[in-house]
Design a protein around this nucleic acid. Structure first.
Length: 269
DNA sequence: TTCACTCTACAATGAGACCG
DNA sequence: CGGTCTCATTGTAGAGTGAA
């Protein structure tokens, strides 16, 4: 959970609750309260802005939610700036937040990079831009990628901030290839990205005509030691595949090649 | 005095069992 | 299959407590 740039601790909690509800349809405010060791009535009041939290309670919540030390500090200061007993403590918390905000432009960029890597459509958008028919219009992008216009606009702004694209007088140019995935990329972002790609693949399986898609799977017994070799072959294949298809100026669609090669015996562990 | 906190109670809702 | 009942769960309101 990244809280950089967030100015309201309630939004952080609401976002976490929403995310848990999305992952589990049976998850509720009461379940969230149980996990945070908070009475449900209390959490209801807090989320609706009727009551606040103590710093001690905020710190406990930050620990439960797995915040890093610095995230926990920001979260507690956000709480304290609103609910600390005494004006002095509230003001001190505000000062700490302001100091943190000045140092946080770097963190904002990290948040951008995290979002760009973990949401599949940023990669697709980069490729979409190279099509002659591309229009720098959230509604057009929304229709082309099947995302909301707000997501489309945010993604364009994010790619611009990350200097992956340049927008001049409404004309968009790609500045560099997307190389955001490296050893610094959080594994949670990568997992989220792959999960989303697999979800898109399932949609394509159900909705796209056979002549417009190609799905295949094969099972093969292997010596685990040769996994490094296998990864190298897949990488080479992907590169050659893309080089061949990307050539020419007649491109009119963006396709996704997603390759999964995994241990079927241990997949459920 | 204020406000974080606990406890209890309430109405709304949904799932499941039962019956005709 | 439809109606009714029971029970669990939900979110929220309100009263009261205690610490700062």
């Amino acid at each position: 959970m990244l809280i950089a740039g967030e100015t309201d601790y309630r939004r952080i909690l609401k976002r976490e609750l929403e995310s848990r509800c999305q992952q589990n349809a049976r998850y509720s405010l009461r379940a969230f309260a149980r996990d945070l060791a908070l009475p449900a009535s209390r959490l209801s009041e807090v989320l609706n802005g009727k009551q606040g939290l103590s710093r001690e309670r905020a710190s406990g919540i930050a620990t439960t939610l797995g915040f890093s030390a610095s995230e926990s500090d920001v979260f507690c200061d956000l709480v304290e700036s609103q609910h600390a007993r005494g004006r002095v403590n509230r003001e001190l918390a505000k000062v700490r937040l302001e100091k943190n905000r000045i140092n946080s432009s770097f963190h904002d960029l990290q948040l951008d990079a995290f979002q760009a890597v973990s949401d599949w459509y940023h990669f697709a958008l980069i490729q979409l831009i190279s099509l002659p028919e591309f229009k720098n219009d959230p509604a057009w992008i929304s229709k082309a990628l099947g995302i909301s216009a707000v997501e489309a606009r945010d993604a364009m702004e994010r790619l611009e901030r990350l200097k992956l694209i340049e927008v001049k007088r409404g004309k968009v140019t790609r500045l560099q290839e997307f190389v955001a995935v490296n050893e610094q990329t959080p594994s949670s972002a990568i997992r989220k990205f792959h999960r989303q790609v697999l979800e898109r693949a399932m949609l394509a399986l159900d909705n796209q005509p056979l002549e417009e898609r190609s799905f295949s799977a094969i099972f093969v017994p292997i010596d685990k030691q040769r996994m490094v070799e296998a990864k190298r072959w897949i990488k080479n294949f992907r590169r050659r595949f893309c080089r061949k298809l990307d050539a020419g100026d007649a491109n009119n669609s963006v396709y996704c090649l997603s390759v999964q090669f995994f241990n079927i015996k241990e997949a459920q562990k």
